[in-house]
Design a protein around this nucleic acid. Sequence first.
DNA 1: TTGAATAACTTCACCAAGAGAATTAAAAAA
DNA 2: TTTTTTAATTCTCTTGGTGAAGTTATTCAA
Lengths: 391, 391
Amino acid sequence: MPRVELARSTGLSFPAISAITSKLMAEDLLCEAVTETATVWPDDTDEEDTDGLNGRRRGRPAVLLTLNPEFGRVIAVSLRMNLIETLIADFSGSALAQSRLELTTRGLDAAALCDLVIAQIDAMIDATATPRDRLLGIGIALQGIVDSDTGRHLWSPALSITDVDLATPVRQAFGVEVVMANDAVAVALALAAAEPALAQGLTATIMVGHGVGMGVVVDGEARDGAGAGSEIGHVKLAPNGPQCRCGQRGCIEAHLADYALYRDARTFLDLPPAVSQQPSEAQMALLRARARAGDPRLEQLFRQAGHALADAVATTISVLRPHHIILAGPGLQAFDMMRSAYEERLERAVLPWLLKSTAIHVRPSESATIVDGMVRRTLRVVDRNHMETTE
Amino acid sequence: MPRVELARSTGLSFPAISAITSKLMAEDLLCEAVTETATVWPDDTDEEDTDGLNGRRRGRPAVLLTLNPEFGRVIAVSLRMNLIETLIADFSGSALAQSRLELTTRGLDAAALCDLVIAQIDAMIDATATPRDRLLGIGIALQGIVDSDTGRHLWSPALSITDVDLATPVRQAFGVEVVMANDAVAVALALAAAEPALAQGLTATIMVGHGVGMGVVVDGEARDGAGAGSEIGHVKLAPNGPQCRCGQRGCIEAHLADYALYRDARTFLDLPPAVSQQPSEAQMALLRARARAGDPRLEQLFRQAGHALADAVATTISVLRPHHIILAGPGLQAFDMMRSAYEERLERAVLPWLLKSTAIHVRPSESATIVDGMVRRTLRVVDRNHMETTE
DNA sequence: TTGAATAACTTCACCAAGAGAATTAAAAAA
DNA sequence: TTTTTTAATTCTCTTGGTGAAGTTATTCAA
């Protein structure tokens, strides 16, 4: 945040940083933070003189620079099974307002969907009294297949329509940049931002929840274009496996996603029916509770899910050879029940030399992670465009 | 090749190109080609004035620039099952000499392997009377797992030893840059260079031969670091499938690689034994001939191989979502017998929206493709280093 | 309180890379 | 020969950066 730190991290010289930051401050994009009395310093020196003055050092103290939160705002939308989540954030990424709209998404046609998304965005703008010219960008995270080149939404389990262009109408409605991404990419970004260790090298985030998706992040940044999102959930484990929502059989998702577990459990257990085959969070919690209570059939179901998860990880390691794999999403709340089956299968499904060179992290993230990550992605794109235009 | 073309392709201004090229010419890196009488022009104009003068146009003709072949030389080594192939090329990438050394690679220890590789390189230098200071780089393409960060050779089916550091001794012996890569990456580069259409966007090259590997090329360049090479061959199709050389079971490779096909065929057919379980090219040709002659058991074997190939393609598409997939390597010489099974399986194993957005190309390349691609890779790295140091 | 000491910034002179305009060069067409 | 056309160079100028020196704000020690 202080200029010295910027100089160190960018490798640029000190005068260059000075020039750039003063230009950005003239644009009101950056501003100097109020000098706090208890400034925390990075403890990168091995000196013994750690005096009692709360980490203060001699010399002129660094002036902290922050993004001016008032420079503008971005809106992130997460569109998934029976849920449209919307969030508006200021330029520093802090949330100002959010909304959740539950509805049967599979009942929508393309026009209705666009109208709905636009209405949600409008509502956010109104709720926070955001001037139109202060809206800098809109990010839409989608559950399903996004064409990385065109941004079109090719297919989603949440929708009965295919090949939807959501970006163009929204861009026309608000006249700002619209960023489309797979929701797993958004989660991957949020997790990489939260843990700096995961923002080093190639990180693949497998998100297990309503579906099974994957996002790829390189050095903390989403990969542009092809290769950013992945449909690991629709890799086939067996030619004649269980039915998947995608229409094919034997997909990893059909063994591992919440809808698959709930559907399979209902064949031998009395459980309340799910709306559009999509169990709610409460229903999934119930399922886990019953399994933990010791139902051997449910235990077997979660063991099979563990196998499927191991196969997803094994395939990802073999094909992508990432430095890190993050297992994320609400589905991981049942990881304790999958663990032994997962580990046993993983051992046999990946070459040991590959397994050794990949670190696997389990982070059962919440649903808010999607819009959080999407805000980051959108801000990043807005930033980049701004640089290019004012350069 | 001419300066105008460089300006167009790089987007730099004309004076900039002039300055850069004249600097490089002073370094003897570039030189002007002799003005040929029948200069071939790019036919990018739609003008009707295509006179009979063999494509000549009005105006000052462009001076063709070429890399000075005498600027230096690079050596590429391909290390694979029972074979060490070596090639020395001039700075323009033209081969000057090559050698093939057949031996039982699995009998070597680390020191013997290093000595052997160094001896092969020495032989190439001597054979072409290359002054030591003219050797700019050495590229080594390996069958097996290469650690993209350290360049260590973690595991190879061709060797009984694991975790070998071949780069350091070779670098010390010759004092030049040593580039390590998976052999599939080398093939991918060679194919991308041969067909400009394949050098656009993300291209995954699946090489089927002694093993099954994959190389990833983005816009004609090998991806650096993690994610360049992939062990798609060791993705598992079934937990208890056929035995693979890697020690695990059910790998794609164990259904598809030449050694697997030959081994399985020998269980029901009289065929000459293979050296170290590695059938020769002649033996594989014999196998294909017998299958084409109409042996139903062999036809079934190749159909199963077709299924495994489809699964490899399906997994690659789902995880990587590339623009192009190239199926390459000698194993594809039997593609006609795999085709129907391959197509039928592929249809069921990939989401149609993904399949539609990936172009699949079949290129049964020869073995020389590996060293060819490795020369390109090495030249590219040497170039880059040169730029950085003289900058 | 008052001056070192220290560290964060700033200013200034300078350099290098590239852009645009005008100039020179080499060939075909008139 | 002269004109036209296209390639390449030269010149000037802007821009984005560096290094060296100067300025400012703060702690510590006399």
